[in-house]
Design a protein around this nucleic acid. Sequence first.
DNA 1: CGTAATGATTGTAC
DNA 2: GTACAATCATTACG
Length: 466
Amino acid sequence: MEEQSHLMQTLSGVTLAGHPVALPVPHDGTDARNKQDIGDILHQIMTITDQSLDEAQAKKHGLNCHRMKPALFSVLCEIKEKTGLSIRGSQDEDPPDPQLMRLDNMLLAEGVSGPEKGGGAAAVAVATAAVGVGADNSIEHSDYRAKLSQIRQIYHTELEKYEQACNEFTTHVMNLLREQSRTRPISPKEIERMVNIIHRKFSSIQMQLKQSTCEAVMILRSRFLDARRKRRNFSKQATEILNEYFYSHLSNPYPSEEAKEELAKKCAITVSQVSNWFGNKRIRYKKNIGKFQEEANLYAAKTAVTAAQAVAAAVQNSQTNSPATPSSGTHTMDETTGANFHKGFQMKDEDFQLDAAEDKNNLLNNMFTGSSGSYSLPGSGDMFMSMSGLNGSYQPAQVPSTGQTQGDSIRHAIGQSLGYSDGLRGNPLYSPHGLNGNGGWHDAVTPSSVTSPIEGANSVHSDTSN
DNA sequence: CGTAATGATTGTAC
DNA sequence: GTACAATCATTACG
């Protein structure tokens, strides 16, 4: 107490000399009396707490009206300033919290925070739509988006609420302090500091909000991913299309981006699903080629048939004025087994008529550049050979009457035509021709040396993969 | 209900 | 980025 009053007095002299604080000290030779006054006021301040409320109120009023009050006020403010700074000097600086930045970034990335135009539901809808832009399976994402927009809405309303509360509280405190500054020494700096403290408090609350929002998004995300894990098998048709492509590009089963897109469109699945499928197929085929042999042969047959049809169409197109051959006459085949093969052929015909009609050129190229063109191994299951057999010198072997399915008979027939005993065992119809010793596929070699039968007439390369 | 098939994910390498 | 390999989790099937 005693020391403090002494300090005050000292400061009143020293600091005021340094700072041109407007202290209306009349320099008219009444220094001694002023000191006496100040001492008196200080004494009254010190003892004011010991007095009763009414007494204190009266004293306060008296002090307020004291002529030395403004000067003393500034001095006290300065003292408070000094002591305040010395107590929490380092607290003034608040470097950007790395965690807050992380949260902000995440919320921005997830589309929860970020630019919001107009506000309200419309903005939320716009924002969520923007979030879903990259989604190729929008149906699957709709639920996710709905939930995310819900989170976003809650986040923004809460944030707004906090901001409003923060502002209200700040103005309230500021008013209060300004009010009080008439009766006790409160410098503007102190008010500013108080406002900062309030803001800090509220920003810490905001951080909690951000954190919980992030958590909510994370939970939603994981749930969404879990939901995506719940797979559904592709439709039979989609699997057929994919398999067809795979086995007709067995030498290099890496569909280009465009091919993937087309396959995705045809199969009504996403491009990434096509990629997944090919990834799985390649690895599983490679792992157990024997297991896939039957499938390979089946699709080889299908492809062969399609190719035959395509070639037939091409031939018909190119030979516009050639003597019209009967519809069945396009495929000259042996009388004895012709019927059997024809049955299978017709089936395949029906199955793939659509494809052949809608993308003839593509199929042709699949046949000849994709499969035939890149085969390097002699005697590999080759559309070229199948074609030559179908178009001209098809010499079917005896088909065993062991109750084969139509597909089996086709496979067998073609296998025979290529000189293989049976596609399933022994020399496979679809040997892993494209597979190198290390278990990887050979690079798709440009079939420069291998000339496709129709390469000259129809020199279109559709095998754009790699 | 056990098992194979299959679509999706994750970790690693290039 | 993609491809591969391993793995997970669900679905289909006997």
